[in-house]
Design a binder for these strands. Structure first.
Lengths: 357, 357
DNA sequence: ATGACATGTGTCATCGATGACACATGCCAT
DNA sequence: ATGGCATGTGTCATCGATGACACATGTCAT
């Protein structure tokens, strides 16, 4: 840390007291034009920059929000949420401190301890690694906002209504004539130890798949429902989607449409299809979820988009509301929606299929 | 900001002075076992947490590194670099403050001002938006490290030797029998206004392409060299690669191999090939650069990998060296290397090609 | 002439942690 | 018994910004 000019030095140079300099800086109170000019000159020549540490210590307000994310490298989703939060924070004069827990509750705990030492004004969790960390902050009376997934009802959250977009996707498939629709997704039981609150995301997507089937008058086929983890660290991302799709293709009656509950899984699905020499959407249609990788895949993936940046923005706003002591901040729910691109098409007719086989 | 217990309160509760509490906290000097026990008990019951702001103000050391990145959402590359830097920083007791300039020099300037006010101990630039921002910090005597691209020679940098991996890629193509090898890449003249230092990345990759051609005894074909911006904000990512590949396919003698100097471009290339009904690597081989999207594409992309996290790690280390006043920290250069996956194969024979046509 | 008010500026305690310095004991060696 | 040293603890200035408070002087209305 270098030692830039202090306000005291500026005052000395301008031949006034620190209070007067402060008045000029804050633009409050009376200061004669002459004095003001001298002070402004001193500020300019010394390239004075206020010391935020001193100010924050004095004002007991750090103007900083801690943002805990799973792992910003694991899924572009987190980067987008973080960016949304950062943008609004900046507009409000706040800054965000980002922290990756990488799935480790222990690491998350350490990160939070540092947040507290740093006296952050609030903490955003874009998925907490451990509920205990969330409740600990609540006990410490530090405002908390949960983004995407809520670990507790004791703090407000910003979540997505996964069902609307997912149902739209199912309707899209059905309208296109598909009757053999498979699901490749995260298993509610395996995700976050099946925690009843945390698994909401998977429950909603899975529920919408089944509801969509029913709404379309289609029966539920257990062989078409492939649930598992999103990815295991041993493998790379996407491997799960690939494996599931291989299994589906090897089955007796392969589906003509696949709904993957995450673009990373969808990427794996596309890989398996590609490897099998089939084409999307000619032979099989695919819809993903998230709209993270979608635009980069071949073909460009039709997917259910989540308002990622908005999640971050609304998360910050809820945090700010708590900081300012606004009435009880309620939780927010944002919609998801289907983005149609090139991976979902009409069900192949029998003749079409024969021709390609 | 809540008001947690202060060291003063702990001292009062334990019936000692703040100096003694500080001794226990720091583990220095003499403290009787009895006193120590009382203090430790007080710390525990009050859940005391030191105020980092006060400490940093007093010690004139913020233990914070500012990290300016282009836009963490634009390319997974940045997220990985940031993560690498964060990891090492944490190990050294530092934290990183992330800031996205999103390509705006003005925004970058604001971010840096805040870094200075925050009294960061050093600043990492994973690509500065403006050279002026880098030199400004240098003038302020704040240690700077440039990662991936250097805007000035006046501060150390961690860069990648793009040529080694790129040459490896070219050799791979040639070994596989390809003779019509195209390039889809960033144009050195268009990138960062063609700044002689900043364009080094593009120069190296483009240079390696040409050198690889020559080394393989192949002549340079201007029609095979497609240069442009990586992406324009009006479009989405990857569009540039798609457009270039469409043009190549529409040409008289389409290439049998394409070297894309960035995975995002490669993704677009794959989309165009897919759309044309051709297969990779059967009809056309593709190699990318970065290893960001590669593993998610179909087929899994052979690509030149950059040591992204290492860039961040080494960047932090160079910053730390400067902070600690170690001798003149010299710049570092990391190698790139080819990662073979499924998108590069033998050149199709004439018969193979006829069969598919 | 005097009180009321606008204008202009300075003093200083405060935020919390730090560590230099001072000041106690008690014990041992000379 | 006296100096030297280990042991144990307290006092207080400091880091830089903030803003309440006090204290000037000048102007105007009554």
């Amino acid at each position: 840390m270098t030692k830039p000019t202090t306000l005291i030095e500026v005052a000395r140079i301008a031949g006034v007291s620190t209070a007067t300099v402060n008045r000029v800086l804050k633009g409050v109170g009376y200061v004669s034009a002459d004095t003001r000019a001298r002070i402004e000159a001193a500020i300019k020549t010394t390239r004075y920059r206020p010391n935020a540490l001193a100010r924050e210590l004095r004002k007991q307000r750090s103007m900083t929000i801690g943002h805990v994310v799973s792992a910003i490298t694991a899924n572009p989703f987190f980067a987008s949420v973080a960016r949304g939060a950062e943008d609004v924070a900046l507009e409000s004069g706040f800054r965000t401190l980002l922290f990756n827990h990488n799935g480790s509750a222990e690491r998350e705990r350490q990160g939070i301890e540092r947040f507290i030492e740093r006296r952050v004004d609030a903490v955003l969790f874009t998925v907490a690694a451990s509920r205990a960390d969330v409740t600990m902050l609540i006990e410490e009376k530090i405002p908390v906002v949960q983004v995407e997934r809520a670990a507790t009802r004791d703090a407000p959250s910003v979540t997505v209504d996964n069902a609307v977009g997912a149902l739209e996707a199912m309707r899209h498939f059905i309208t296109l004539g598909h009757r053999r629709i498979a699901l490749v997704g995260g298993d509610p039981d395996q995700v976050y130890y099946g925690d009843p609150l945390m698994r909401a995301v998977e429950d909603e997507r899975l529920g919408a798949y089944r509801a969509g089937l029913a709404a379309g008058g289609l029966s539920w086929n257990p062989n078409y429902e492939r649930l598992g983890q999103y990815y295991r660290h041993e493998d790379g991302a996407g491997v799960q989607g690939y494996t599931h799709m291989r299994a589906l293709l090897a089955g007796a009656e392969p589906p003509t449409a696949v709904f993957a509950t995450c673009d990373i899984l969808a990427a794996g699905v596309l890989q398996a299809i590609y490897e099998a020499g089939l084409r999307v959407p000619d032979d099989i249609s695919v819809i993903g979820f998230d709209d993270t990788l979608a635009i980069n895949l071949a073909p460009r993936l039709t997917t259910v988009a989540q308002p990622m940046e908005e999640l971050g923005r609304e998360g910050f706003k809820l945090a700010l509301a708590q900081i300012e002591g606004d009435a009880e901040p309620r939780s927010i729910r944002l919609p998801s929606r289907l983005v149609r691109r090139d991976s979902a098409g009409p069900v192949p007719s029998a003749t079409t299929r024969r021709k390609r086989a």
